[in-house]
Simulated scan of single mutants.
Amino acid sequence: MPLLTIRHVTCYRYRQPVSIGEHRIMMRPREAFDQRLLSARLDITPEPRELRWLHDVFGNSVAIALFDRRADELVVSSEATLEHAPLAQGQVDVEPYARRFPFIYSSEDMPDLLRSIERQHHDPERIVDNWARSFVRDDASTDTVAMLTDMATSIRRDFTYVPRHEKGTQTPIETLNQRQGTCRDFAVLMIEAVRALGFAARFVSGYVYNPSRSEGVLGGGNTHAWVRIFLPGSGWVEFDPTNGIIGNRGLIRVAVARDPYQALPLSGTWFGPPASFLGMDVTVDVHRADPSQFALTDHGAINSRRAGATGK
């Protein structure tokens, strides 16, 4: 089970000191059975007047920072160490009634999945619908997992990954027409496509890493985006169309949401002359941690041996 440390640093630069408003920070990895958070630290310069934590409607950990001073630079640095338990494609176990597409979610699940099935982008000419339907067999023998896998891997194979640091995402139709985009564009395309087929799907923001030197992944060095699809029997299953990954191998979740705008790693306001903003720099580093820096207590808890490690 890999022991990983993630360091995520974002720096906003200004031509002159500006007043910094409230900022919303989503950089703390989610805790779950497949990723166990051992330590987490959040450092902010200038130091905020107040820093408080909350869980949003999706259960993501969100830090709210309030400031009372002017500065020409805002630096937010998050460092976390966790145990990661990768789930491979072969471990996806679907209930018998859902192994063939189409199927209908159970009456117990459907009320909570409805908002994740709703389409978010207009498709009057059914361009996305037709593309999604191209993965469905005509003989009523479509294997559910195989179809979703085919969709994810086809995006990886047929579309060109092009990094883009500007905010926002392309529409699914733009991505289909251009045959290129960022990881978040590919995630939005796949979400809309599977929703067109009746699946519940959510947007995931987090980090990607190389499980081994022999595997090449796209989207490293920055935050990454992919998709979670609800499959009866396995629950929410990861599909990364940028890398063709099925399961969470190499993927570390931070935020899960219905739409990308609900999962921004860092957002906020500043006040000053319009030409003050100079730019933003983001660096993300994911590497294997030294197990000797952590000790297992008699009660099964993990204690960090690193000086300064906190649970903020």
Rank of each mutant, 00 (worst) to 15 (best):
M1C: 07
P2L: 11
L4S: 02
L4C: 05
T5K: 08
T5N: 05
C11P: 00
Y12M: 06
R13K: 14
Y14W: 04
R15F: 11
I20Y: 07
R24I: 15
I25L: 10
P29I: 01
E31D: 14
A32C: 10
Q35L: 02
R36N: 12
L37S: 01
A40P: 02
A40M: 07
L42N: 08
I44W: 04
E50Q: 02
R52A: 07
L54A: 11
D56T: 08
F58A: 07
G59M: 04
S61M: 03
D68F: 06
D72Q: 12
E73L: 04
V75C: 09
V75A: 04
V76M: 09
A80D: 13
L82S: 04
E83L: 15
H84R: 12
P86N: 03
L87T: 14
G90V: 13
D93Y: 11
V94H: 01
P96H: 12
P96S: 10
R100N: 07
F101I: 06
P102H: 09
D109A: 14
D109R: 14
M110Y: 15
P111Q: 00
L113D: 09
R115T: 13
S116D: 09
E118M: 12
R119G: 12
Q120W: 07
Q120I: 10
H121Y: 15
H121P: 00
H122A: 12
H122T: 12
E125A: 09
R126H: 13
V128T: 05
D129F: 13
N130P: 06
N130Q: 13
R133E: 09
S134W: 00
F135T: 02
R137D: 10
R137M: 11
R137P: 05
A140M: 12
A140Y: 09
A146N: 01
M147V: 05
T153Y: 06
R157S: 11
T160Y: 06
Y161R: 05
R164N: 11
H165K: 10
H165F: 14
T169Q: 05
Q170P: 06
Q178F: 08
R179N: 03
Q180V: 06
R184C: 05
F186C: 01
M190G: 10
E192N: 02
V194W: 00
V194K: 01
F199M: 02
V204N: 04
G206Q: 09
Y207F: 06
E215N: 06
E215Q: 15
G220Y: 08
N222G: 11
R228Q: 15
F230R: 04
W236K: 08
E238I: 00
D240I: 11
T242N: 09
T242P: 08
T242C: 07
G244S: 07
I252D: 02
R253E: 07
V254D: 00
V256D: 01
R258E: 12
D259N: 09
Q262Y: 04
S267N: 09
P274C: 03
S276G: 06
L278A: 07
L278Q: 14
G279S: 03
G279P: 01
M280G: 05
V282S: 04
V286N: 02
V286I: 14
D290G: 04
P291A: 04
I302E: 04
I302R: 02
N303H: 10
R305W: 08
R305F: 07
A307G: 14
G308C: 00
G308N: 04
K312A: 07
K312S: 13
